[in-house]
Amino acid sequence: MGSSTKGVNGNYDYSFKILLIGDSGVGKSSILLSFISNSVQDLSPTIGVDFKIKQLAVGGKRLKLTIWDTAGQERFGTLISSYYRGAHGIIFVYDVTRRETFTNLLEIWAKEVDLYSTNKDCIKILVGNKVDKDKEREVTREEGMAFAQEHKCLFLECSAKTRENVQQCFKDLVLKILAVPGLLENGSIVVKRQILKQKQVYNAPRVGGCCS
């Protein structure tokens, strides 16, 4: 069982957990796809929770981002809330062409996060998507900024379609996470615990036959 280099993980200094939250159809999965694979395509609605991994280097540190993408329908809330635990960063997404997605962030999603996330220092960024459809805009940049200021979030507007600002969203978020010592500690602890767990698994006595 020696070939650890063949593992899926590779090597990294910190591992961060990031969540994408927001209403149905605001473009959470599209932003993620645009960030991960530089591609743009029509996506089906997310069922429950999905995620992607991206490794990158920022400020001389090798990072592994595990980005959890969530379903927008409120009814999945109970399921999604169990994923909030231990998140280092949360990306709140709304659609600048649909006002209700903006107000719902305030009324529903922000409260959910406050209720369930355990990392007090967790970094939040507010992202207004679909700026390519500027003619249909219903939420101004100023409104977004005011919201972000009030809730101590970072703020950006982007377009998953044109890919404008998509990389920047993640970069801003990660840089801020790196600047918070409490979170950093957390990020490396995750790694240590995983290694520990893995050892336990391999050292565990072999379970033979059936258990009934």
Binding site: I47, G48, L79, K197, A204, R206, V207, C210, C211
Partner: peptide, 27 residues
């Protein structure tokens, strides 16, 4: 757990004992 206890144990160690990763397949 019944047919592959080792795999089940491994998943449980990874905090995946709830098998939520199979959510979409079944849904």
């Amino acid at each position: 757990k019944a047919i592959d206890p080792k795999l089940h144990q491994h998943l449980e160690d990874l905090d995946g004992g709830e098998y939520l990763f199979a959510f979409r397949m079944l849904m």
